[in-house]
Design a protein around this nucleic acid. Structure first.
Lengths: 161, 161
DNA sequence: GTACACCCTTACGTAAACGTAAGGGTTCGA
DNA sequence: TCGAACCCTTACGTTTACGTAAGGGTGTAC
């Protein structure tokens, strides 16, 4: 029997960690949660297939989307418990569809925030040349900004308690 | 001395909670962290000025931007410790400026994710009519999708371990 | 003057995603 | 065969932003 040298084809946990930018502890955790299932060397070392890199990157992507690791586990279970491809795919589709909605909501919120930040920065720029110099307690009641209304909410909120 | 009726001009903690959509506990927490400083009734009730609503909403906004409550506290301290408006404003400006960068990074990431989700959904749609029906284990190796490469990462990752 | 809603403080509980430390084996090249 | 580097399990610690419960006052409308 020609047993291939394991160390040539498999990754140890530290290797996987390095290739994915995760810590060893994180990878252990993923396994505890059922997201990874390495084989073991006779000495007990975890041995990962090269595909595990993809799996970890996939996990990262779902995390970026706002899924918790527990969500991801449920996700995999749904998959493994579906017997036919169409039903599994439909479930996955539903989950992704909902997440797309959420992602787009978040995008809208952040876009608004980005604009508010820009406005606030513009406002604050005119503070640099405040003359005569005010104390910060006096701030917010000067006419240096050419703003018809008042300061942007992000700035105004600092002084309001 | 004409003492105004407190209950007419001030909010109790429950009132503030209702007007901001926060819980009483959350508002207590904000106070513990130094983000709010209500006066007290003779019986010990917290009494909030109407402006406290703005302050809480401001806190919410900063949270949305990814600031922790501790960050926000530091933020306020910087403000209160600056004696002149220009120096305080400059510090605030720097913080906002950094956060704008982060926000825009996040926007870029989420935009990409949104696109990936759409691609994945399109891909999964062609699974609905899988014929002959495959088991989910067989899935990922059929030619029904007209994709030259393989499944989108978000889909492909499910089956790779 | 009493009921009922609301408030007080204190303090422990919770969930997520790991960090960190202890005590001890495993690999593998030299 | 030895040592350095790496791995194992177990298990407690950490942070954030509150939740929740206990035991007991307060406010106010009737």
């Amino acid at each position: 029997m020609d047993v291939p040298a394991l160390h040539l084809s498999y990754l140890k946990v530290g290797d996987l960690a390095r290739r994915t930018g995760k810590t060893v502890r994180a990878i252990h955790l993923y396994e505890e949660l059922g997201l990874l299932a390495p084989i073991r060397s006779k000495g007990g070392y975890r041995l990962y297939h090269a595909r595990a890199v993809d799996r970890v990157e996939w996990i990262q992507k779902l995390q970026d989307m706002g899924f918790s690791l527990t969500d991801i586990k449920a996700f995999l279970q749904v998959w493994e418990q579906s017997s036919t491809a169409p039903s599994a795919m439909q479930t996955v589709r539903d989950i992704f569809s909902e997440k797309l909605r959420e992602t787009n909501d978040t995008l809208a919120r952040l876009t608004k925030l980005s604009r508010e930040l820009e406005e606030s920065l513009a406002y604050l720029d005119s503070c640099k040349s405040c003359e005569p110099v005010h104390t910060q307690q006096q701030c917010g009641c000067c006419d240096m900004h050419g703003h018809e209304g008042h300061a942007p909410l992000l700035v105004d909120g600092i002084t309001r308690h």
